[in-house]
Design a protein around this nucleic acid. Structure first.
Length: 468
RNA sequence: UCCCCAGUAGCUCAGUCGGUAGAGCAGGUGACUGUUAAUCACCUUGUCCGUGGUUCGAGUCCGCGCUGGGGAGCCA
């Protein structure tokens, strides 16, 4: 038995072969068959191992042991090939591997659901366990991985502490979102206390759920480490069924002490630019693929963001502009209402023609923790809007004054006694601080041109769907 | 949750006025070829989403249900 079949060290990734393989060298590649083109005198196999978008062309002549069986290989088979790298005489690829020996590691027969043709995203979603083996999803998940690492690098380079905030929480008032319940109680017959479920008998001695945001805990760490960020899973039990919502997603939430709303916006702008630049510079092959097959002009759009100066506009001003706009809006605009996606897109696309911050929203439409401005009617909130999607980042300066924070909690129906630990951060050494949140999947959508959030997360969880 | 659209071969889809189905791709066989989602010829494949109804007769019309998609709300 050939030892190279078992040795990981003997294997070269296709990305490396195509980028740096020496012509004439003998090497071993392992991967999955994308297509087999059989001839009488020569057979071509397109082999892909996920290390890059491109497949490696493997050329086999009938002298190769087991040639007949190899010709019958189905799409999706896993194989190992030993051969020598050569200049390719035909168009389509610079290099190819002249196979000397091929071992079928795992057979893929004709029932393999992925064919060497285009499939709809809807169909691929139904076989999410296999779709990563396609060009589009290969590219999506390589970019997603690269972006995640770039996000950590961005914050590491700026001295931000990476904090793991809890996933199980007893705060039922973090955000507006509905929470998933976490319990070990017997659902068939839970202990009752005066007719209601008695959560004091539950695992944690109180009602708990999955986090809808790490922000509150993040703020506490910012009051110790100055600059921090979270990047982790987040859960919303909303019955939302749209191309932009999933029940489980990943969120990035930086928080800075001794920072105001302007510093917050500056960070958001720098962060967003950095990530656009990152995919353009580091995911070229995959980004070119998206640009060619998914969204013509994607690269131009992102280059535009990198070069653009980000606009800034007061909410008051935005409302004035929208009220004067001739565009036919589905929803009318009045001071005090939240901006709809159509309004946001009008502002960023038609009025400014680039990324735009909207600042200082009416306090009635924003969360309790946002800092009350001196005018008494607005809070120090900021939304970052971008063409094509509207809001992509939302943030604020937090209310650092204990009395005002408590008053806002009461006004919005939150019992301050449930968040004593949060209020403590304002009790001793409170500093002005600010932060924002960015949904990771929405970022991936924006940067790849993918239009359904279920296609940028490996195994999406949506109402009625927790497969795989 | 609300509004719209769709469900036909393994996949993508066509199916006229109501008369029990067809193409391309995939698969099989053969030919041919330094091929590029190869090409050419021939062949195979159906619970027409389910259910009830109208009708002599339903893929087609109607009701209900299920599933998927798009839009809205909520939001990241």
């Amino acid at each position: 038995m050939e030892i190279w079949k078992h040795m990981k060290s003997g294997r070269m990734k296709i990305k490396e072969v195509l980028a740096a393989g020496k012509v004439g060298s003998e090497l071993v590649v392992k991967g999955w068959v994308r297509s087999v083109r059989v001839g009488k005198n020569v057979t071509f196999i397109a082999l892909n191992d996920g290390s890059c978008l491109a497949s490696l062309q493997v050329v086999l002549d009938p002298a190769v042991p087991g040639y007949r069986e190899i010709c019958g290989l189905g799409t999706g088979s896993a194989v190992a090939v030993r051969g020598s790298l050569a200049e390719s005489p035909a168009a389509g690829q610079k290099r190819e591997l002249r196979g000397v020996e091929l071992i079928v590691v795992g057979v893929g027969d004709e029932s393999y659901p992925l064919q060497k043709k285009r499939h709809s995203f809807e169909y691929l979603r139904s076989i999410a366990h296999l779709r990563a083996r396609t060009n589009t999803f290969g590219a999506v998940f390589r970019v997603r991985s690269s972006l995640a690492q770039a996000i950590h690098r961005f914050f590491a380079e700026r001295g931000f502490l990476y904090v793991h905030t809890p996933i199980i929480t007893a705060n039922d008032c973090e955000g507006g979102g509905e929470m998933f319940r976490v319990t070990t109680l017997d659902m068939a017959g839970p202990p009752l206390a005066s007719g209601k479920v008695d959560y004091s008998a539950d695992f944690f001695g109180k009602a708990t759920g999955l986090t809808v945001s790490g922000q509150l805990e993040g703020e506490l760490f910012a009051q110790a480490f100055s600059d921090i960020y979270t990047f982790g899973p987040t859960f919303r039990a909303e019955n939302s069924n749209t191309a932009r919502h999933v029940a489980e997603f990943w969120m990035i939430e930086p928080e800075m002490a001794f920072a105001d709303l302007m510093a917050d916006a500056a960070l958001a702008e720098e962060f967003f630019r950095y990530l656009c630049r990152h995919v353009l510079d580091n995911c070229c092959e995959d980004m070119d693929f998206f640009n060619d097959h998914l969204e013509k002009g994607l690269l131009e759009r992102l280059e535009g963001v990198v070069d653009a100066s980000f606009g800034m506009m007061e909410y008051d001003n935005a409302v004035d502009i929208l009220k004067k706009a001739k565009a036919p809006f589905r929803y009318p605009v009045e001071w005090g209402c939240d901006l709809q996606t159509e309004h946001e897109r009008y502002l960023t696309e038609q009025v400014v023609g680039g990324p735009l911050f909207i600042l200082n929203y009416p306090k009635e439409i924003k969360a309790f923790y946002m800092r009350l401005n001196d005018d008494g009617r607005t809070v120090a909130a900021m939304d970052m809007l971008v063409p094509k999607v509207g809001e992509i980042i939302g943030g604020s300066q937090r209310e650092e004054r204990l009395d005002l924070l408590e008053r806002r909690m009461v006004e919005t129906g939150i019992d301050p006694s449930n968040l004593g630990w949060y209020l403590d951060s304002r009790r001793w050494g409170s500093s002005p601080h600010a932060g924002f949140g960015l949904g990771f999947e929405r970022l991936v959508m924006y940067l790849t041109g993918m239009e359904n959030i279920r296609d940028v997360i490996p195994f999406p969880r949506t109402p009625g769907h927790a497969d795989f």
